[in-house]
Design a protein around this nucleic acid. Structure first.
Lengths: 334, 334
DNA sequence: GTGAAAGCGCTAACAC
DNA sequence: GTGTTAGCGCTTTCAC
């Protein structure tokens, strides 16, 4: 049975305002009154009604974090976003969009816009137009590079440079048949950028990108990496290195390589992307391109908070958090 | 700029009620009126204010899912809970408690109680008393066995029987120095139950549980399994099997075993618990006790929905979803 | 078919 | 120091 301020007020024999004052630690309340009200509060088990509060003052103190799914990378990121938000007194409402455009749209600016004060979204399927519509009505910060230049705040590492660094690490090892795992028939967003970085690295060494070394996938999960590497090895048994566009693909790849009798890194060196915790425990441990996830989370929350509390419109900003390569045994042996 | 029903009404030249009727697809609205209102709705970009709606009709259509952290098991479970809830038209607000008691209490029945219609919580630190206080004021369903018999709905596989089955699998393989990885100085909750299942299995084969085969941990993460197995091997180099209380511990264990030159499963067979996706991709793939996670999620949401919509108080119920052992190469070779 | 108005619980401006 | 009151946006009788 919900208890309202009014209930407490009548029990304590004071007005609703006095109860409100006590609840909000308003200093100018006579100590005896305060004690009496506090007792009534405790006895009745009063708890503020957030909907009413939000309706009244227009803020909920909550932000939404919309993620396609709870894979390791997004889980680790969510953890950090929650922490960063808590430091600012904000509660995070986490939403799993399933990568569906309709859901992403709804979440980002629609249904929730009157529930949360702002949204951090990692869109998979949302289009630039979707975002355009939303951004004026609701503070929003985008994670990942898919919709760059769309006029909203943006947080993502420089994917091209990072992919290039990962590929160069393999080339520096003397490998010259480096495959790219995670490409797509019609590359877009993140995939396109990582592919570009890979190609830049090759070209800088005067190596011609070779279509037969591109392993396409539908999703970025372990089974996709597994299946793609089996196909790749059938077509190009001479491959000597693998740049995987994320770690899950790499884990699937490690398994496929092992099944095909390839030693890692002796026969094939493997680099992943994201540096999820699992990298340190795979066999062999996976060298991975590590985005500074804490910096990503911090930047996203920071930008969003600024935007939420801004009086005037803010120019869209772009933040590129740092990254670094974490070398492990999948490339440098043990 | 938020648009209210009133705004739409004045633009469409009708009353607020008519707009509401259109928004709610109330059938008895003259088509011409409906069209005019719909146009105003679209032009102004009306979106309902959820706080107001909730304030008015007492329900938010949201449930909270409170998890200690976003580890693989909880992430997979969260995915399934979101899906199960969506099927019932509910939105899930996911909360990361960090395993802190104060946070768990707040979430479970406190701060959020007026924001969500019910809560599914997987408590790590919450005590029985905490739950007692909350359960009458707020629909709640608990995941995991830690607080059994506390008078609230409960969903958890039979941990004792499941742990026993996992241990028996190792014994059936002819191993007789089976260590338990994941025990604690002061076993409680899940740990106590899994330990008991392990001991039951041993005793049924007339094997005396041996303290030196208990590998204690602080947390259930990969590094804890890794460190504990290094200690275990130092003390008991003759161990020939490992029952790990969760998969992450097992992944840490696999790595430690490999570093110590133990072959899996030839020298040491390893069983995990939870059957997270990673099991199929570890090297070797990990045999694991697989709770039916979809059934857990389904049961949790189902119980909660019943409770939320109940007129009369419901007796606390306990649901034990099925589980099964998923044999893989970490015990049965390849 | 549509309109007017009360009231959900809260906050804040304004009285006293 | 404390009380009164308007009104946030919505739903829902109850009139018309």
């Amino acid at each position: 049975m919900p208890v309202s301020l009014k209930d407490v007020a009548s029990v304590a024999g004071v007005s609703i305002k006095t109860v409100s004052n006590v609840v909000h630690d308003y200093p100018f309340v006579r100590p005896t009154t305060r004690a009496r009200v506090q007792k009534a509060l405790d006895d009745l088990g009063y708890r503020p009604n957030f909907s009413a509060r939000r309706l009244r003052n227009g803020r909920s103190g909550m932000i939404a974090l919309s993620l396609p799914e709870f894979t390791p990378y997004f889980s680790e990121l969510a953890d950090l976003v929650v922490v960063a938000a808590e430091e600012r007194g904000l509660t995070v409402l986490i939403d799993r969009s399933g990568g569906e455009r309709s859901h992403e749209r709804r979440v980002a600016g629609g249904i929730r816009s009157n529930l949360v004060d702002g949204t951090i979204a990692s869109p998979l399927a949302m289009t630039a137009e979707d975002v355009e519509i939303l951004r004026d009505s609701h503070p929003i910060v985008l994670l990942g590079e898919r919709l760059s230049h769309v006029g909203v705040d943006h947080v993502a590492i420089d994917s091209v440079a990072a992919a290039r660094a990962a590929t160069e690490h393999l080339l520096d090892l003397g490998r010259n048949r480096v495959a790219a795992l995670g490409t797509a028939r019609r590359p877009a967003g993140t995939v396109a950028l990582r592919q570009r970085g890979y190609e830049h690295a090759l070209r800088a060494r005067r190596i011609r990108p070779d279509r037969s070394l591109y392993a396409d996938v539908d999703l970025f999960h372990r089974p996709d990496g597994y299946a793609a590497v089996h196909r790749l090895l059938a077509a190009r048994p001479d491959v000597d290195a693998l740049f995987c566009f994320n770690d899950l693909l790499a884990f699937g790849a490690l398994r496929a390589l092992r099944e095909c009798g390839r030693r890692v890194p002796d026969d094939v060196a493997v680099v992943g992307f994201d540096d999820v915790e699992e990298c340190a425990y795979s066999i062999p441990p996976l060298t991975s391109l590590a985005p500074d996830k804490a910096a990503v989370a911090e930047a996203a929350v920071g930008l969003l908070v600024q935007r939420m509390s801004a009086e005037l419109p803010i120019e869209p900003r772009e933040v590129f958090p740092p990254y670094r390569l974490m070398p492990r045994e999948s490339t440098i042996g043990s």
